[in-house]
């Protein structure tokens, strides 16, 4: 059950290591171990709020249940979200009490832990849906919509929504229901924007329900493959 921590550390992508460093400290094995313990339920949130129960120890989440993947997100981003859950700035009836019960150090350590987990290659069930809707979502991701006055998602979230850390989370491979729920919450004012810029609240307000379904389906369908090194020369 217990993965070999030293090995996990060896496997850290440069990406994750640098993201952690942004938090002010290079990840120490002790911090990762402490974060894993928090994920296991040893934090202030207790066993009932153990992270792994929904998000897994590998941070893969549960697509069917709409629990987002945490692996491969930056520690910076995860930490900010936990802080926002804890303060209620990001309202969520499940996450709010969990995050609030953790100490600041526990929030930090568990963020570092999950950031250190490599994203899993998506396997098994593929999202299903209307090809036209998927195509529309892909267009929104890569081009945006002149009609809505919305820029391409990938301007900030990277190609196919693979994330641009530390501040722009990975969307690729996240559950469509999770993504759509966030966009609807922003659109309806249930999830406050990110002051002072309010990027997502501003953008979500311009999307139709169709756009939201399309773009969520698109990102959910992006295959999360380990990043391939390549020069990508155009012909």
């Amino acid at each position: 059950m217990r993965p070999a921590l030293p090995l996990a550390l060896l496997l850290l992508a440069g990406t994750a290591a640098a993201a952690v460093e942004l938090l002010g400290n290079p990840p120490s094995p002790r911090q990762v171990a402490s974060g894993r313990a928090v994920a296991a339920g040893a934090g202030g949130q207790g066993q009932q709020g153990a992270c792994f129960a929904c998000h897994g120890f590998d941070g893969a989440g549960q697509a069917a249940a709409g629990f987002p993947a945490l692996a491969g997100q930056s520690a910076e981003y995860l930490h900010e979200q936990l802080e926002r859950y804890a303060s209620g700035a990001r309202p969520n009836p499940i996450m709010q009490p969990i995050a609030a019960a953790m100490t600041p150090d526990q929030r930090r350590d568990v963020s570092v832990y999950y950031a250190a987990q490599p994203p899993q290659a998506s396997a098994g069930a593929r999202p299903q849906g209307d090809p036209a809707l998927l195509q529309h979502g892909g267009n929104l991701s890569a081009i945006g919509s002149a009609e809505r006055g919305v820029q391409a998602c990938q301007n900030c979230h990277g190609p196919g929504g693979i994330g641009l850390w530390p501040n722009y989370p990975r969307l690729a491979g996240q559950p469509a229901d999770y993504l759509a729920a966030q966009l609807r919450a922003w659109k309806q004012g249930e999830r406050p924007g990110d002051e002072p810029y309010n990027f997502m609240a501003n953008i979500a307000a311009r999307l139709t329900e169709d756009d939201i379904r399309a773009v969520s389906l698109y990102f959910a369908s992006v295959r999360t493959v380990p990043r391939q090194a390549g020069t990508g020369v155009l012909p």
């Binding site: 890569a142 081009i143 945006g144 820029q151 391409a152 301007n155």
Partner: peptide, 10 residues
């Protein structure tokens, strides 16, 4: 030309 699609990144 317009912001979308002409100026989009990358």
């Amino acid at each position: 030309r317009q912001t979308v699609p002409d100026f989009q990144s990358p």
